[in-house]
Structure formats: structure tokens, C-alpha cells
């Protein structure tokens, strides 16, 4: 861990302004991902802005009938919130499928969205990685890639986004509310929040320098049967090989988002549109254009089979 200076932010606007004015500044909230990476010098911020004392830890009803989730709401609290359990069960389920009880007690809503990939080469500073060190190449593409992405990849990067929560947020059409260093606020649809790697895999989100997440807003509940299925090698405390978030509506409609497949929570309009035609059609639409490696080609079959399983569950 390189040395850094530390400050505790007193207000969101001050935090954002400080982040812009201090070279190499990073916000820290839960720290469960950032400190992991700082110990390995994958992240080397010169200045840490601790946002934990900002009062962004509330979950409030919106005028539109949805929920505004403060950026600092811990994963445990979000999953346990009675309104979330009742109206957005897929989000509770996704959160509870992630990490461990200890990590969920610490990890925040905003931090979870900004989690970085678990690609093993990203984690090894002695190896090429375009995401960690732009221009050095991608060791994963011809390397060990069983856990890596088959959708939305580029010639520069095949990393996956590791979050479970973000997959459910994507399914629910959440928006990410931010404040810029100049005080401007905006809302970013989650579909646009995470970037695909293209030739800039180091740029992972739509956030501008210094821009601070204030909250994540969920639109009003959509009802239906909520399912989050996470497939992994061990029964708990593991990242997804594939995960599927789904909401089935009584009219045979449905919507689907996927984790473990892509550099961002993966959702395809055509897959939602195919809901009435069943799991196979949804899988074909969702996986259109897949680029697989020898190691991760199984994810296509696994995704289709997982969809078959949750269709069976939803219709049981």
C-alpha cells in the first residue's frame, strides 16, 4: 500500500470538490474492494476521502413510488429493508448471494456498483493487463479464463463485473444519482453507468473525475415473481460463474439480467422480449454475439440451463 493522505469528508459537495482538486484522490466507503487492491498496489491513490460520515445511509420512498437508496447504505441493510424484501425481492436475493455476512455489513451500495473485476491477471501486477495498466496487453484472453466474460468483451479485455447487486439493479432499471465537483447533480440510468471495455478497459463507469454517487433510485415496483439464481463452484462465499436475475410477470412476460457473463451487468432487450417463448429463446437472444474461449465456452450452455431452471421454478 502506497502512502496517502487522508481526509474525512463533511459534505457530498465538499467531497466531490476535494476529489477534483487533489491529484490521485479516491473516495473510500466500505473499503472492502479498494483496500484489497491498495495492498497489492493495483490501486495507488495519493489521497483518500473517507465518505463514511456523510449522511447518505437512508432508504427513502420517492414521489414516483420507488425507493431512493443512499450511497452508503450497507449491503446487509439494503437486503434486509422491509420494502426491498417485499417489492424488490430480486435485489435482496442478489445482495444475499454476494460475498459474506462480514463483507455485506461493510460494503456499500455505491461501492458495490464500482467493484472491480476479479480477473486473476488484473490481480497480478507482474502480468500484462490493459485494465490495470493500459497498453500492456491482456494476459487473460489466451490464458486462464474460466471465470471471464463471453459477452460485451473487446480485443483489449475480457474481464467480468463481479457484482451480484448490480445485476439486480440493472434488472430493476435503477438510476444512479450523483453530484459533480461543481455541485451539479445528475441521474445516470444504470444501463449507461457501466461501460463496456472497448479500447479503454480502464474506464469502467460513466462517472466524471470527482463525481460522487449520492444514491441509487429504484422505479416503482413491477410486481411479478422475483428470482436470483447464482451458479458457483462452492455453495457460498464465491463469485458467480453465471448468475441470472429475473422477474416473471403474470402475462408470461419477464425481464432478465445476467452476472458473470460480461464486463457489466448484462441485459438485452431482445431477451426480455422473448420471455413468452421460453428459456431457450431468452438464452439465444441474451447470448447473441457471444465470444468464448476454450475455458469459458461452457458459460453459454450454463446460462441457457440456468434459465431453464428458473423458468421451471417460476412456473411451478
Amino acid at each position: 500500500m502506497k502512502t496517502f493522505t487522508y481526509e474525512r469528508a463533511e459534505s457530498p459537495a465538499q467531497a466531490a470538490a476535494a476529489a477534483l482538486s487533489r491529484p490521485g484522490a479516491r473516495f473510500i466507503a466500505g473499503g472492502t474492494n479498494l483496500l484489497d487492491l491498495m495492498k497489492l498496489q493495483i490501486e495507488t491513490p495519493a489521497h483518500l476521502i473517507d465518505v463514511n460520515r456523510l449522511e447518505l445511509d437512508k432508504i427513502e420512498a420517492t414521489n414516483e413510488g420507488g425507493l431512493r437508496i443512499g450511497a452508503l447504505v450497507r449491503n446487509t441493510d439494503l437486503a434486509a429493508d422491509k420494502r426491498v424484501r417485499r417489492d424488490y425481492a430480486v435485489l435482496s436475493r442478489a445482495l444475499l448471494a454476494g460475498a459474506s455476512g462480514q463483507l455485506r455489513n461493510k460494503a456499500t451500495t455505491a461501492g458495490n456498483l464500482l467493484q472491480r473485476t476479479r480477473c486473476p491477471y488484473f490481480y497480478d501486477t507482474t502480468k500484462p493487463c490493459n485494465k490495470r495498466k493500459p497498453g500492456t496487453g491482456c494476459a487473460a484472453m489466451k490464458g486462464i479464463s474460466r471465470n471471464l466474460a463471453i459477452m460485451g468483451t473487446s480485443d483489449a479485455c475480457i474481464a467480468t463485473h463481479p457484482s451480484d447487486m448490480a445485476v439486480a439493479m440493472r434488472l430493476l432499471d435503477a438510476t444512479v444519482d450523483t453530484v459533480a465537483p461543481n455541485g451539479t447533480k445528475r441521474s445516470i440510468p444504470i444501463a449507461d453507468f457501466h461501460r463496456l471495455p472497448g479500447d479503454r478497459p480502464e474506464v469502467e463507469s460513466a462517472l466524471a473525475p470527482g463525481e460522487l454517487i449520492l444514491s441509487v433510485t429504484l422505479p416503482k415496483p413491477i410486481g411479478g415473481t422475483h428470482i436470483y439464481r447464482k451458479v458457483r463452484d462452492r455453495a457460498s462465499y464465491a463469485f458467480a460463474l453465471v448468475s441470472v436475475a429475473a422477474v416473471f410477470t403474470p402475462d408470461k412476460g419477464g425481464r432478465f439480467a445476467f452476472g458473470g457473463l460480461a464486463p457489466k451487468p448484462w441485459r438485452v432487450d431482445a431477451a426480455d422480449a422473448a420471455a413468452a417463448q421460453g428459456a431457450k429463446a431468452v438464452a439465444e437472444a441474451a447470448l447473441s454475439g457471444a465470444r468464448t474461449t476454450r475455458d469459458n465456452a461452457f458459460k453459454k450452455d450454463l446460462t441457457a440451463r440456468t434459465l431453464a431452471s428458473i423458468f421451471a421454478e417460476a412456473r411451478a
Binding site: T32, L35, D36, T76, Q102, L103, N105
Partner: peptide, 23 residues
């Protein structure tokens, strides 16, 4: 020391956390 094992679990403000992944 990377939040992968739980050996460092302590209770902070009534909640269990990994003490290795927090300053």
C-alpha cells in the same frame, strides 16, 4: 489479509466485519 477467509472477524458497532479490509 484480503477478506477471503474471515479469521480477522471482529464486531464493530455491533456488527461483524473483516478487520483486514478496513482502516
Amino acid at each position: 489479509d484480503h477478506g477471503q477467509c474471515g479469521a480477522c472477524t471482529v464486531i464493530v458497532e455491533g456488527r461483524r466485519i473483516n478487520s483486514c479490509l478496513t482502516l
